[in-house]
Computed example of a mutant assay.
Amino acid sequence: MRSRYCAFVFDNAAYLADTVPAENAGNYDAKSITRQKTQWTGLEIVSTEAGGLFDQTGYVEFIARFHEKGRDGAHHEKSRFIRQNGKWLYVDGEFPG
């Protein structure tokens, strides 16, 4: 999660595209995300579930703070990750209630 946040901060579209499963790549346009005029200002990890050494899935709930169009905001998400070939990949996320 932290590495993907850093990729957003530094507009690293290649890394973002490389950290989703191949079957999801068509639904994910990392380049359009990095073209946004968003200034990411902080990441707070709220909680984690699974994602340990022997797990194949994991969840990270986080709040990413940003500044965009003269306003401050926050993106709160619980992300689902899977491990493929030893590498953690972002699958999808939901907005906690």
Rank of each mutant, 00 (worst) to 15 (best):
Phe81Ser: 00
Ile45Gln: 06
Arg83Tyr: 01
Tyr28Asp: 11
Lys37Gln: 13
Asn12Lys: 07
Ile82Thr: 09
Lys37Met: 12
Thr41Lys: 08
Ser47Ala: 13
Gln39Ile: 15
His67Lys: 14
Lys37Ser: 14
Asp29Cys: 08
Phe10Leu: 02
Ala50Val: 07
Ile63Gln: 06
Pro21Tyr: 01
Ser47Lys: 15
Asp55Pro: 01
Asp72Thr: 06
Gln39Pro: 01
Asn24His: 11
Pro21Gln: 04
Asp55Glu: 09
Arg4Gly: 00
Pro96Glu: 11
Phe54Tyr: 05
Ser79Cys: 08
Ser3Asn: 10
Ser79Lys: 08
Gly26Leu: 03
Tyr5Gly: 03
Val91Met: 04
Gly73Asp: 09
Arg65Trp: 07
Glu61Arg: 15
Trp40Gly: 10
Ser32His: 11
Trp40Glu: 01
Gly52Val: 02
Asp92Trp: 05
Leu43Pro: 04
Ser47Asp: 14
Ala30Leu: 05
Tyr59Met: 07
Arg4Ser: 09
Gly86Trp: 04
Thr48Pro: 03
Phe81Asp: 04
Glu49Ile: 08
Glu49His: 12
Phe62Gly: 00
Ile33Cys: 09
Val20Ser: 01
Gly70Asn: 09
Tyr28Glu: 04
Asn27Tyr: 13
Gly26Ala: 13
Arg2Glu: 15
Asp18Phe: 06
Lys31Asn: 10
Thr38His: 03
Gly51Tyr: 08
Thr19Gly: 00
His67Ser: 05
Phe62Glu: 12
Asp29Glu: 04
Trp40Pro: 06
Leu16Tyr: 02
Val60Thr: 08
Phe10Ser: 07
Ile82Met: 03
Phe10Gly: 01
Lys69Asn: 15
Tyr15Val: 05
